[in-house]
Design a protein around this nucleic acid. Sequence first.
DNA 1: AACAAGCTTGTAAGCGCTTACATAAAATGG
DNA 2: CCATTTTATGTAAGCGCTTACAAGCTTGTT
Lengths: 333, 333
Amino acid sequence: MATIYEVSEAAGVSLATVSRVMNGNAKVSERTRKKVEDAMAKLGYQPNAIAQSLASNRTNSVGLLVSELHGSYFGDLMSTVEQVLKKNGKHVVITAGHVDETREKEAIEFLKSRRCDALILHAEAVSDDYLKSLVDGKVPVVLINRKIDDIDDNCFFVDNETGGYIATKAVIEQGHKHIGYVSGPLFKKDASDRLKGHKRALEEAGITFSEGALFEGDYHESSGQEGMQCISEQFPQMTALVCANDEMASGAMTAAREAGKEIPSQLSIVGFDNVLFSRYLYPKLTTVDNPIQAMGEMAAHWVLEHVYDIKSQTPIKHLFVPQIVKRDTLAAV
Amino acid sequence: MATIYEVSEAAGVSLATVSRVMNGNAKVSERTRKKVEDAMAKLGYQPNAIAQSLASNRTNSVGLLVSELHGSYFGDLMSTVEQVLKKNGKHVVITAGHVDETREKEAIEFLKSRRCDALILHAEAVSDDYLKSLVDGKVPVVLINRKIDDIDDNCFFVDNETGGYIATKAVIEQGHKHIGYVSGPLFKKDASDRLKGHKRALEEAGITFSEGALFEGDYHESSGQEGMQCISEQFPQMTALVCANDEMASGAMTAAREAGKEIPSQLSIVGFDNVLFSRYLYPKLTTVDNPIQAMGEMAAHWVLEHVYDIKSQTPIKHLFVPQIVKRDTLAAV
DNA sequence: AACAAGCTTGTAAGCGCTTACATAAAATGG
DNA sequence: CCATTTTATGTAAGCGCTTACAAGCTTGTT
């Protein structure tokens, strides 16, 4: 692997000059630029990014923490962030935190130790205080899908309460009165917010919430099945089921079918997130669009603007409002 | 950010000693180790991975190239590779090549410039020769889902021809004689191999292949829909459709339903890959399991063994044989 | 022709670590 | 108790770059 030294020798110029043509910033005469470029090409020279980073204190890479590397939701997030950043010559270093406090912290430490220029975090397990101190630290940090008071400017989040509200509202508008709800794990803020919205919609419509109509799942498909079974036992009059994400909605659909219920004629189902596969389901899932891609894009733009001084045309916005996506699993009672 | 120098000062020892306790390799007395560790804790010292890499010529990170950051197939791959490597203290740097020759090369150059200790590539667009020269280069490289003669030892691949064969065989065994096929883009080796297997199965059963029964798709859902429509026009007697991946199978199912055909009573469908959502589909998709996770695991183990000298218990294997997963979209004619 | 002003290039000091080598201290043996 | 080996620590030279600063060249101007 050729080094800058060999290039400088081959081109008959100093190290500094080679560095200059590499970075294209300082002024170099056409003739020497050409000489250097030829030498680089001849040697197949490839700058050592590690050495560059050490010397310049810039890595041109931003760290991205997600909970998992698989799954539509995170796939969409990673994909969007990478696209925006790559378009501007920056790179993404991705790590997974697996919704575990220790592992999230480790992942963040890793990103910091790699001297990422900025961090984009979808952190679910670490505390607000930890994140606050992180934001107060030296490396710029933004949070996705999390709102923490005092550091609102570093947060990009969707209004989950409203999301839960509109999901249930859509169901109520179809005349349903007996509505089940499969929530996510309630220690998660997004899950409890969505539930709160659900309850508000019920209340507003004069429907009393019943404990038997609620099942606390874990956002995975299987708990949607469980939830479906559990609720239909305790709350057999149910005509509609709202699920806190699409995975669980899919599980619920499977369980409903196994129980001989037709969707949507006998049971309406609404999901949340609008991940890609919700369109593949049969019937196509009515769901609440969670603008994860828009958030990822915003976060990336924030970083470009604040860290690399690359302004984008679109203004930065922090709060995203979810919208209902009506498809085929919701029908009038 | 404290440096090793400040730690050495605080602990009253030399740089070298601090480095030694950090790396835990050389011998350091209990007393000084304690002093250093205390100093580190007090200063909140965090080693600079960039500087470590430059000095040691080791990054402890392996590069992973995938085609996209979203999608079940790549999600599974990234997730598995990360898990195996992280368990052994190594990190993954992920990049996307977007099935484009230039972008794949750029992504690989990026990984090399970051001085990854090894590369795991799911490269689809670059040539065999390019990959061969890469393998002959200095940084260890393994290929996933690609077999290139002469460098078999660096390849982990599934027998796509057999996969195509067993998919079609399964259909034939159910008595079908009029079988459509939606292939992937035929410039891709896996797509053409699967088609080859399909043709072999037909031939073996004495069924003549008809051009009208074939549609060349692009592996995306929409082309499954197109394929379904196109084939049922030109080949209306079709009773079963084999698709070269699950996404297209899902699209085909949608199109079939829109055309009023019931699955599987009027039309059997078989997919390929067995991605996660194939289980969520209704009816649940019969498909060919593509052991992407197993391949990812193997590739990671290969790297651990060859680059980091960490042996695993399971022997390295290069060829993976796909298996049919019978679910609900395949019925007797 | 002499000189200032502007360009272009070179020199050298780091960036924060690792590691071969040298040296000092402790342990061993006769 | 001294010579010899072993063990613990320090010294200093890099790793491959960037970037102040200095120095050398061109110009244009008078």
